[in-house]
Design a protein around this nucleic acid. Structure first.
Lengths: 209, 209, 209, 209
DNA sequence: GATGAATGAGCTTTCATTCAT
DNA sequence: GATGAATGAAAGCTCATTCAT
């Protein structure tokens, strides 16, 4: 008889403490590798409290990831409507993107795990959030406008879209490997160069000559 | 088809059966989620046999991933030396890449998990394999040559490298999410378009005008 | 009846039930031969409870032996200060000694096992308890006093000490073999004669004539 | 269809290698703690060979202990008939005793374990060997003769017997503990003093004055 | 809400023993 | 005699989950 997410008031903040701790635990170890006991100890609450607030480890995982992804994408998408020209727009998108990553490094780990063990409900939620946002639509719209005006070459907007996304998030996903291959040590500096390189390559790539 | 890891002759093929079965198990469930019992049953061997050949689940995991990555990358890298012009070269690289993915879909899942829970030894091995291969060096060399000859714009070759890699592997990593967002159903068709789109965008992106 | 080892209150008595059961199990089978499952079943608790209170079989063993030895030696040593003359003193010591054995027959088995597989920590603890007690010091003091007064012959007090101890505990240790050799059937009667024989032999042995 | 002990010729010495290795293993770890694999590896033979020569770990244990005890006691008892006077006799007995211990330190460990987990068959064998030997009979005979001649006090010969035995073997059994209590470091020197102290105490203890 | 204790099912690992060659 | 591979049963231990208070 409990509703979707927050029927229990959580006046003591226990629920939130659990969520916060669980996020790192799941990011670090995945659903299977996470330990309820460890979450409880780190959060400073009794193990049984976790089952009082969330019925099971799995449900805790879903709650954590759902809330986390919603929060992250709310932040990302809230700020990407800015920018008039395509390059301003892309740069703004990349910046919020990177900012989100730097603020919550767990984000990438959880995303990687979700991609490896897709959870229908979570991925569908996430897909809906992204699809419903302005970002992909705006990019496609601006590309099509540019193509119509002869500024851009005729290209497949979906593929272009995909290229932007993979270029921008790709390094974050591959960082543990990429850093080892190319000896990247200062990730912040690298990301700063990277965002300009992406915009530069993309714009030159689509521009008509 | 067997790497030099194999010090024990394995004439009965038991070791290989275990490795093969374990690969899917680890891809599907990760190290923590994998069940030794399930591996044994599926491989048709006694559970204790797994500990006879590999002393622990963790060591089995490392053996599996090490051998698998070496095998995959040997295949990928072996064929990418072909192609004289940059676009031929890139296309060949992308094709073997995609081919590897389609042959061994576990590859991407294991890679995703390794990126989420990096294992020093495995990632270092992998980084060494890739760094030691011709691929990155060749791309960078051709770009520099092109820049020297004035054919290409002056760009950062490392970033260009990263862009190629993220564009090419990015979709494979993000597929479970991307497919849901854009309703991609025929992955083979999409990948076929994608490889040309990548080469096209990249070449136009670096070309001097 | 409980030692100061016990940091957890153990209000349910579960810890104590485990300790008590484990004592017999370890006495009967040794550390390697003891079965955690058997202890749990006999103690009427869940196997996991054993790991909740003690983290491992080995640690349970150490706890059991430590608490047991402390308890036994506290009893033995508490009562041996009585007796003014040396023979009264020795008789009192032997009696408490034998009493401890008859009350807790596991004592000897565990001691035998500890002597066969010495555990640094446990034996050091035990040595400290015994060394710190009045018993050896008192014996030596009385012997030296007697020697000074010319009542006793000049002998090595350490060796005399060792002779008392080995004579008194020796039979308890060797009983399974000794009983078979000399067909001793009534151990209680034998021990009763033995304690007087020891005092008698020892006193005549040290007495100056 | 295999007879008691050595139906298999053992021309390669494998059986003996196993026995020798197993002796240390059992001394060090006991029956339950011993590992067949470890014995095989240390003996440099295949595990299955152990089962070829001895049908089971338990049977191997019995064979090892039986042969070992027979050998040790043969040595001890063979030399104790020497000595005309009681003190010469006792000294000779103690010396061979100590010699056996120093030659085969495993002897004491195995004895301790047998006393803790008595094996009917082994202890009965051992008891028979000892009872059948000249040693206890000789001691008792000499004591009775001495008492008859008025040289010794009237004492219980069985108790006197037991006192000699416990004093002489007691320290060997208790050494791990005794050494810690009294800081005995040079065991050889201690034993040398000890054997004289025992004879001295005993003779003065039984002597009529 | 909160806790410590308890549980059952299942996990990884071990080990004595055997089999095919 | 000798070996490497195999097995079944069980061992120690873990962990999500629940209960009594």
């Amino acid at each position: 008889m409990r509703t979707e997410q927050t029927s229990i008031p959580d006046e003591t903040g226990t629920r939130q403490k659990i969520i916060d701790t669980a996020r790192s635990e799941f990011a670090e170890h995945g659903l299977a590798g996470a330990r309820v006991e460890r979450i409880a100890k780190t959060a400073g609450v009794n193990k049984a409290m976790i089952y009082y607030h969330f019925h099971s480890k799995e449900y805790l995982y879903e709650s954590v990831v759902k809330e986390f992804f919603q929060e992250i994408f709310r932040q990302i998408l809230a700020r990407t409507s800015e920018g008039k020209t395509l390059d301003q727009f892309l740069l703004a998108a990349l910046e919020t993107h990177i900012h989100a990553y730097q603020t919550s490094p767990e984000f990438v780990k959880i995303l990687l795990r979700e991609l490896a063990s897709p959870n229908e409900s979570l991925l569908n939620d996430l897909a809906t959030t992204i699809r419903g946002s302005q970002f992909p639509a705006t990019v496609v719209a601006r590309l099509q406008q540019g193509m119509a005006e002869g500024e851009y070459r005729k290209i497949d907007p979906q593929q272009a879209m995909m290229s932007i996304i993979t270029m921008s998030i790709g390094y974050l996903l591959l960082a543990p490997l990429a850093d080892r291959i190319w000896g990247i040590e200062d990730r912040t500096a690298f990301l700063d160069k990277r965002k300009h390189a992406i915009v530069d390559l993309f714009l030159h790539g689509v521009m008509a000559r």
